[in-house]
Amino acid sequence: MSAFHDINSANAHICSFDVFGTSRDGHTSPRQRRDETCEWTIRFRTQMKRLTTMSRARVPVTAAWGDLVGYSRAIRAGDLIFVSGTTAADRDGNPLHPGDVTKQAEDIFQKIIAALAELGAGAQHVVETRVFLTDSRNWDQVGRVHASFFKEARPAITIVQVGPFLFPEMLVKIAVTASTA
């Protein structure tokens, strides 16, 4: 028995009700409305079942606070990959390249590309980047680094200024979303 058949069976009670004829004023008949509602319900439940049964994989955080906070560097759920906000830090969580936003951005994008590779994707699969800067005057420096990594993919991008990070030496944090579909 197919998953679609199971979903059809599960929705039988939603899709079966009496039809009292057609509308006199030319509007959609009760039968047409019932059929549209039934079709939408089946599509919705099929999609929800697909989302709840998709495979998941993750890339662990190698920095000290990964276990403390309980998060992953990246998660793949089906065709989507979500890379957590990433900073330029060593394995002990110490900031790298203090005061140099360009080098921090390069380090961050290298970490992001490595995490994507572990999940079977690359820079060409990135569809959105989110850049968080402690000083918005650095947007162009980070933008140039972004362009060097994503010149072909050209993902959507959001750049915002935020308050200081946990370490004031960290000037930028970047997160991405990728799709292999």
Rank of each mutant, 00 (worst) to 15 (best):
R34V: 01
P164F: 10
N94V: 09
N11E: 15
A57Y: 03
A178M: 00
L96Q: 07
V69I: 12
P60F: 05
I42S: 07
V101P: 02
R56M: 09
G122I: 06
G21C: 05
E152L: 11
L116E: 00
R91Y: 10
G122F: 06
I112A: 00
S55I: 05
A117M: 03
M1C: 12
A153F: 00
A10F: 10
V142Q: 03
K103L: 13
I159T: 15
T177F: 02
E169T: 04
K49R: 14
A114G: 08
D90K: 03
Q104C: 06
T86V: 11
F109W: 10
I14P: 05
N8E: 15
A88F: 01
C38D: 04
M48E: 13
T28F: 08
E169V: 03
R144F: 11
R73G: 00
L133F: 10
P164M: 11
L68I: 08
D92S: 11
F132Y: 14
I157C: 09
L171W: 02
G26C: 06
G70H: 03
N8H: 11
A3T: 15
D18F: 05
G93Y: 01
T41Y: 04
G122K: 03
E118N: 09
D140T: 13
L166P: 01
F4G: 11
L166I: 08
F109D: 02
C15Q: 06
L119T: 01
T102D: 04
I174G: 01
A89T: 14
A175K: 03
P155Y: 00
S23H: 08
H125G: 02
F132T: 07
F4K: 14
S136Q: 14
A114S: 11
H13A: 15
L68T: 08
D140G: 07
T180E: 08
I174H: 00
G93I: 01
R91G: 09
F4I: 15
S72T: 08
A123E: 11
R45I: 00
S9M: 14
V131W: 07
K151Q: 12
K111F: 10
T158H: 09
A115W: 03
L166W: 05
F150G: 03
N138Q: 15
H125E: 08
D35Q: 06
I42C: 07
Q141P: 01
A181C: 11
L171S: 03
R130Q: 12
P155K: 03
S148R: 08
R34I: 04
T177H: 04
V142K: 02
A12S: 14
S72D: 10
D6Y: 13
S2N: 15
T86R: 01
T62A: 06
R137A: 15
